[in-house]
């Protein structure tokens, strides 16, 4: 699996469960590849930040 494919799967995983073999291939690639690991973490954070923004977690920050 190359980085392009791995990053596509990392994105897809945010939207739907991957098949077992795809999941394993992606995991193996992420173990070896720092860049794709960064990409995967960044897009997860994108989603997490949006969720905590919506759920009002940001208000804690504002009060500080």
């Amino acid at each position: 699996m190359n980085c392009q494919k791995a990053s596509e799967l990392a994105s897809r995983q945010q939207d739907q469960p991957l098949s077992l073999s795809k999941k394993i291939n992606l995991k193996l690639h992420l173990l070896m590849c720092e860049h794709c690991r960064n990409f995967s973490k960044n897009i997860e954070q994108l989603s997490d930040s949006m969720q905590s923004f919506l759920s009002g977690d940001d208000s804690k920050d504002q009060k500080k």
């Binding site: 960064n38 990409f39 973490k41 905590s52 920050d61």
Partner: peptide, 14 residues
């Protein structure tokens, strides 16, 4: 891709 700072590590949500 470069790693981002985590909000927990001082990045403000806003």
């Amino acid at each position: 891709p470069m790693p981002w700072q985590c909000p927990e590590a001082g990045l403000k949500q806003e």
